[in-house]
Design a protein around this nucleic acid. Structure first.
Lengths: 246, 246
DNA sequence: TTTTTATTGTATAATAATTATACAATAAAA
DNA sequence: TTTTATTGTATAATTATTATACAATAAAAA
């Protein structure tokens, strides 16, 4: 694989992805750790090919790490301060990894590419953690799900990017719920409520929550789910396919 | 002034500004017309210097055309389809203006710069039309306010950009009202209502509108305004300065 | 078989927010 | 004065949201 500086990318533009996943009352973010000495975490990111829509680039970057195709993606903000560059981070990385020689060769060229100022377009995605097998690429040492409340320290302004993505996710949740992929195919109302409570980090009153969600008219009621518990069995639901709504 | 291709700009990134102004129940957009044969209208746009925040670049581009300093600006969307370039428009312009020779010289270089693919960051601004004297720059033939419902045909996807800006403006209106600049220093409640009715393109019930706006707690009531009309004189208001709100 | 337990689904009461209506208070002309 | 065309405010009617009550029920315990 060619180095970024040799690819046909639009220069100084990057895409940062905040991949939200949900599992057992925890909202998580998929974050790779770089395969270098020193602890460097960075959001899944990439660049835009000359002939590629930015939405498609975001999708590609996501697929590389999650290998799922039908993904829900939303552009939420552009980060464009003049001070946004990887120099501080890269210099720190090089200091911790003296075997990397930056001299008159490819490395020098890559160093210059990476330490440019970048304007970054932020996208967030929602995926079902069970449907994703995180994929390490290139320079990843590991790639893991971190609870949104206990993220590792990240490079540059990546923590701020996650915070802004979370705000956008909350704003969009009701509107976009039928595009979601955070729950299994079939689920109970309780599971939906737990998802909401986790994303909003606050409790909802069960009876009113149920009414609110049903009035969104995006759920289809299926058979009951008998778990063996000594109480009334809840119904299972699934999201209507868009054409069925009405 | 140097040509864009010779400036220290970030390449393939542009900023498009939708400058909303309000006057006499009309929501208008400030749009320059290019100084070439053929009718070419394009949103005020510009590029980002290497050492310049994108917010600041947007502010600079706005000041060039309006010469006002304290401007309310909001980033609302990035337009990044791979097909976004000025080639179709420029070729049309050149066809209508045969005196422009594109050959092995500066023109050729400029042509190549302008026909690159551009990723454009959309900003919208709100200004008081009375406080603005539109400024022609460089290649402007004219610069005028057009009613948002009767915009001239614009190049590329600029109509779509305006539409998206209007949606964002409506969404943000209540929240951002104290940052606004669409009304004179002092105004009546009726004027505020007319502003809202114009922006939302729908009527509001007077009594309830008054209550709603007052409950936002951003207005300060001043003296009455005696116009000589044979009826009760309305109060004048002004926006509180932020520190006074509470 | 009946009772008990924990939970679910739905109804409805209480409260809050929104919208519609009524009406007194003007400023100036008739 | 009376009239006219507003404006400011109060309150009624309606709708939406939130709180509470309670019957239904799946399976274990009595």
């Amino acid at each position: 694989m060619k180095n970024p500086s040799q690819q046909n990318y639009i220069s100084q533009v990057s895409i940062d992805c905040v991949i939200f996943g949900y599992h057992e009352r925890q909202l998580k973010v998929l974050i790779p750790k770089l395969n270098f000495k020193g602890d460097f975490w960075a959001l899944p990111a990439g660049f835009v090919y000359q002939d590629e829509d930015i939405d498609r680039a975001a999708k590609r970057i996501l697929q590389e790490r999650t290998s799922i195709k039908d993904i829900y993606l939303e552009q939420f903000h552009v980060f464009g301060n003049a001070s946004r560059n990887n120099k501080a981070f890269l210099d720190q990385l090089i200091a911790s990894n003296p075997h990397i020689v930056v001299s008159k060769n490819d490395n020098q060229r890559e160093y210059e590419w990476f330490t440019q100022r970048f304007i970054s377009i932020g996208y967030y995605a929602l995926v079902d953690i069970n449907k994703v097998i995180p994929q390490k690429i290139d320079l990843d040492h590991s790639i893991e799900w971190y609870n949104v409340h206990s993220l590792p320290p990240m490079i540059m302004d990546h923590s701020e990017i996650v915070a802004k993505a979370l705000t956008a996710l909350r704003t969009d949740l009701n509107e976009k719920i039928n595009a979601f992929n955070l729950l299994p195919e079939k689920f109970t109302m309780k599971e939906v409520q737990e998802l909401y409570e986790t994303i909003f980090d606050r409790p909802f009153v069960r009876t009113n929550f149920q009414k609110m969600i049903l009035e969104l008219n995006v759920l289809e009621r299926l058979e009951k789910k008998f778990t063996g518990a000594a109480n009334k069995a809840p119904y299972l639901y699934r999201f209507k396919v868009k054409d069925d709504i009405g």
